[in-house]
């Protein structure tokens, strides 16, 4: 064809007009019943998701290995050396497990959200459930419940084993309050920290980036404080030491670094506050951003 037709576009738009008014064809009706979906549907979906990927098995497997392995190891070493634990709680030796194990929960938390961005799954997810807040809430609940339950089982097992192993070293029977702190307290704390990782994963939308940030948040304050020798920074050093995540975690085991830092259930409220603020930020950005 050699003759140019500059007006072709306009022509076609004009032709199209009557077509719009054409009667719609026969519409299809599906036999699948329409249901009003709610958070429960999203929870079921997220539960299927988290249990059907290998990374969950890996991170939780290593987590359990570290929690139980380190807990038993330190108890057995202490028992074999006849160290006197007169008047002390045997549970304090459990502090090393969650110190290392928390890294696994960081990874699992971040992957729960960020991996969906890496793979493009997030588009499929949000197409299936356009209520984005519901998706984030379901992910948060499923992850938190899983992390809490697994940690609770691990801390309880380790606690019982330690009490039994260290009986010969003169360790006293832990009080109910001590039991509650190292099981429920620690489980809530590390599960919340994992949840914080999940939310950072949703904010950053990049697995490696979010994991790096969370490990930095976990380790950096303590490491920086260790080398902060300058006199004018004394107060900053003190603050970093007392409020770093490992220090807060040791509070649950009655192993506070100082008397001025957080104590009792304090670390839990701090972590709860941080997680709540981050949740609000992640929720807001998820609603607003394109995916």
């Amino acid at each position: 064809m050699s003759t140019p037709q500059p007006s072709m576009q306009q022509q076609m738009q004009q032709q199209a007009a009557p077509n719009w008014q054409a009667a719609p064809g026969p519409s299809y009706t599906s036999p699948i019943p329409i249901v009003r979906t709610h958070l429960g549907h999203a929870l079921a979906s997220e539960w299927t998701k988290i249990k059907s990927v290998r990374s969950t098995m890996w991170t939780l497997g290593v987590f359990l290995f570290l929690m139980i392995g380190l807990g038993l190891l330190f108890a057995l070493i202490t028992a074999s050396t006849d160290t006197s634990m007169e008047g002390e709680s045997p549970l304090v030796l459990g502090v090393f497990g969650p110190m290392l194990g928390i890294v696994c929960l960081i990874t699992l938390g971040v992957l729960t959200t960020a991996s969906e961005y890496g793979t493009g799954m997030i588009r499929t997810t949000l197409t299936a459930c356009p209520s984005r807040g519901r998706v984030l809430m379901a992910k948060a609940i499923v992850f938190f419940a899983l992390a809490f339950t697994v940690t609770l089982v691990a801390t309880a097992l380790v606690g019982f084993a330690q009490v039994a192993i260290l009986e010969g070293n003169g360790a006293g029977d832990p009080t109910g309050e001590e039991w509650l702190r190292v099981t429920v307290g620690v489980s809530l704390y590390v599960a919340l920290f994992g949840l914080l990782s999940l939310l950072i994963g949703s904010l950053i939308r990049h697995s490696a980036g979010a994991i790096t940030i969370m490990i930095g948040l976990f380790l950096a304050p303590l490491v920086i404080a260790m080398f902060m020798f300058a006199e004018p920074l004394k107060d900053v050093q003190q603050f970093l030491l007392e409020y770093s995540i490992p220090s807060q975690l040791s509070v649950f085991y009655g192993a506070e670094l100082s008397s001025s830092g957080p104590s009792g259930w304090g670390p839990l409220w701090i972590m709860l506050g941080m997680t709540a603020v981050t949740f609000a930020g992640a929720y807001f950005l998820l609603e607003k951003r394109d995916v």
Binding site: S45, E46, T48, K49, S52, S115, T124
Partner: peptide, 15 residues
């Protein structure tokens, strides 16, 4: 739009 580590069945099941 699929997580590569998940089976086809589980991908569709969660949807």
């Amino acid at each position: 739009g699929v997580h590569g580590g998940r089976s086809a069945f589980h991908h569709l099941l969660c949807l």
